[in-house]
Design a protein around this nucleic acid. Structure first.
Lengths: 157, 157
DNA sequence: TTGTTTGCAAACCTTTTGCACGTTA
DNA sequence: TAACGTGCAAAAGGTTTGCAAACAA
């Protein structure tokens, strides 16, 4: 092992070169922007984040680049259920988390659970299907929306 | 308990009447078609299944009815990840299964696992989030596509 | 230089909406 | 009959494609 420090841009550049693909400012900026945003950004939000530094960047480039980054394993794509996709940085180690999706406000938050991971892996071994990834999405009502609902119920609105 | 036999159409009619909504041939046929299809049909596939019996039925009606059936708890909607939704009959008891989604051919199959259910429920209790449902989707390569890949590798194509 | 990548505009495709007609109760 | 549901056509929204200009190697 040469290094165990995670250096995203160096990683992206070298992965691109390894595949004979070009290192462009769009690709570097989009990758960096997704890291800065933290989590769960739509293509349009990524565009807004990149635009200040590179005003000419276009939505087709955002999509193409996010797809490329997904192929490279640097980005994970999540369907939120309203016809839109969200993207988030993926950890190269494969560690990951799952999602709480609020049915009312649509906001996505994350959780991790080792017990759940074990259950998934145990069950994957029994299938005639090569499991390459898994999503566990819990849908319901988030704390903020529960509070709103309580407030409405209390005031009788 | 008056009956523990599951009679889908009677159930649909009475649920509609209970909500003051009308019982139409479209609603009955769409509900029945989804049951006949078995599992995981797109709105367009439902249209094709219903058309022979009711040629004038339209896609907007399919969508409106599937949404209604989902509200009634008779249908479950699944995002397959390509911008399309699939619909399947839901069991009134709340029992359910999860999905194997093939990254190559896009086909969806189902599995159940009690251990996984227990892990999900155990973890849901620790969250400040009211969990109303959950999806567990395993993504990877199905047996048929694995066989294809092997064949290609063997013949060197 | 040469082939890849980008930006623009337009196309795509699933899903939703508006409105007049037909149907249910 | 009075309101609800349907069919049609068109719109909406996110995503993808075609192509000429710009760019990395």
């Amino acid at each position: 092992v040469t290094s165990d420090i995670f250096t995203p841009d160096a990683d992206l550049s070298s992965r691109l070169r390894a595949r004979g693909q070009r290192v462009t400012s769009q690709r570097l900026l989009i990758h960096a922007a997704l890291g800065d945003l933290g989590r769960h950004a739509t293509a349009d939000e990524v565009l807004s984040a990149v635009s200040p530094r590179l005003p000419s960047v276009s939505l087709p480039t955002i999509y193409a680049t996010l797809e490329l980054l997904e192929d490279l394993g640097l980005v994970h794509r999540l369907e939120t259920g309203e016809g839109t996709s969200c993207y988030e940085p993926a950890h190269p180690s494969g560690e990951h988390h799952h999602h709480l999706i609020c049915n009312r406000c649509g906001r996505v938050s994350a959780f991790e659970d080792a017990g759940l991971e074990r259950s998934v892996q145990k069950m994957a071994r029994r299938l005639t299907f090569r499991v390459e990834g898994h999503d566990v999405d819990l849908r319901g009502t988030c704390a903020a929306c529960l509070a709103d609902a309580d407030a409405v119920a209390t005031t009788g609105a």
